[in-house]
Amino acid sequence: MTLFHFGNCFALAYFPYLIVYKNSKLSEYSSFWPCVKAGGVYLLTQLCKMIILATFFPTYEVPLGKIDLHGELMKGAVELFDLIGLFVIISQQIGRGDLKILVAGVGWAMAELISMRLLPLWVGARGIEFSWKYIQLSFEANISLAHHIIMAMLIWMWTRNNIEKSVLPLIISLLLLCSSKQTLLELLGTLFHFSSFGILSINVMVTLLVGLVATHLYINLCIHDNSWGNPKYL
């Protein structure tokens, strides 16, 4: 397609990030560098994940259309490192809870966007061949932003010591769902031959659902934690 098409995809992928940054406490507290640092942690985490995958988990030649369940499980397990990375960012960050969540979520998602999506977009969306996949890729970047903010929110709640013990299992299971979401979606594609648009819409619905539950828990926590006051976090 043309540069115009690339521009469309780029706008679709990046502008929501800009909107979120500009219209939240992030710009108010000039949290640009903390976000960059969060991105650095993201890159380090990915490197660790790759090293671990390459060292400990051998890859098998998998025939097309079949899945290597063992390998997929391993990959899913490695995804848990993301949680550790996000935890590190949140615990290192000084400041209010809502700001911590935003810095970790937006910084992380931004780093992922730049490292994983920019190059395929630049090469693919400008190429002659048209494919819906670049528009999907750009839209996925938006889901990813919400996804990482929700994940950071869940981790932050987990680290609070005044949280009710009864909701901890719920938080942990949501975190597990979040970190294995990508693997599960890929499995849906290979096992049940979902179309890419189908997977995308499932992705949106799952993220929305987890987001609603997480927000609910967050508000409950704010009510519980009277000293903190206004939960206006964005």
Partner: peptide, 30 residues
């Protein structure tokens, strides 16, 4: 691509409105 651009702009507008209204929604819920 022209139609796509229009769709993207409309979508971004919606995102902007959503992001703007989230704090109010949160406060209201709270």
């Amino acid at each position: 691509d022209l139609f796509l651009a229009i769709a993207v702009i409309a979508y971004l507008g919606t995102v902007y409105l959503c992001v703007k209204s989230i704090p109010h929604a949160m406060t209201y819920l709270y």
